[in-house]
């Protein structure tokens, strides 16, 4: 069984945020507008977070791109009262928008703040509306439900369909999420962690590899390669 995972090399990432933009176009996340952004309500499934360390003048700034960590032991799935958020058989944590009651228990339980809430009905400026991704799987979410990074499951579905149409078995290298495809610094890798020969599996074993807040026991499937 495939266990999808991602590796992000922080040495190569230069925080250009194209991944954030690509994710938005691929997954139809709404435009918050300046006043909502001011109130910390932007929806960015793949945010590039700044971490400041030290005191002036010795300050270092690290940027960490943060998609959903797709934990093997996800705290959000545990607390959901209606099983609206669940982990699929290939380890991807998903939200059923038709089921979610909007209690936001999962959003407070997630230690990585990867989950976003639709405070209002989603909106786009006219010019952007024409460019929405037509895939029904990423149709705009209604107000009042939670959403988050899915490792672009719609691409996985399409790749499967394609493989089937071509009459060949589906291969884990057949698809990559939009952020990985776009990454300007080629800092992101995606693939099957259970296949010992895959690039991600090898990189995840690198001495530079670490995961965010590993001490929480959440077992994330997103690995980072240390800077420097």
């Amino acid at each position: 069984m495939t266990r999808w995972g991602m590796v992000i090399d922080l040495d190569k990432c230069f925080a250009c945020q194209s991944c954030t933009a690509a994710c938005r176009m691929e997954n139809n996340t709404p435009v918050a507008g300046p006043d909502q952004a001011e109130r910390e309500r932007t929806i960015l499934w793949n945010e590039v977070l700044p971490f400041e360390e030290g005191e002036y003048p010795n300050v270092t700034l690290t940027f960490i791109p943060r998609p959903c960590q797709h934990c093997d032991n996800p705290p959000c799935v545990k607390v959901c009262p209606v099983q609206a958020t669940y982990i699929d058989e290939e380890g991807i944590v998903l939200v059923d928008y038709n089921r979610c009651i909007g209690c936001r228990f999962c959003t407070v339980a997630c230690p990585y703040q990867v989950r976003y809430f639709n405070w209002y009905a989603p909106e786009w400026p006219e010019e952007l509306k024409e460019h929405l991704n037509p895939d029904p799987e990423v149709a705009p979410r209604p107000k009042g439900v939670v959403e988050k990074c899915t490792f672009c499951v719609q691409r996985r579905r399409k790749a499967r369909e394609q493989a089937e149409a071509e009459g060949r078995p589906f291969n884990p290298t057949d698809f990559i999420p939009a952020c990985v495809q776009t990454c300007t610094g080629k800092a992101r890798y995606f693939g099957d962690l259970d296949d010992p020969n895959s690039l991600v599996a090898k990189l995840a074993k690198s001495p530079r590899a670490f995961r965010l807040q590993e001490e929480m026991g959440t077992e994330p499937k997103v690995y980072y390669l240390k800077q420097g």
Binding site: K78, V79, C80, P81, V82, Q83, A84, R99, C100, I101, G102, C103, R104, F105, F117, N118, K143, G144, V145, V146
Partner: peptide, 17 residues
Amino acid sequence: GRPERVFYPLIYGRFQS
């Protein structure tokens, strides 16, 4: 967030939550 789904916990309730 979705007040009209107030009875979902009765229908789909999960005891782990």
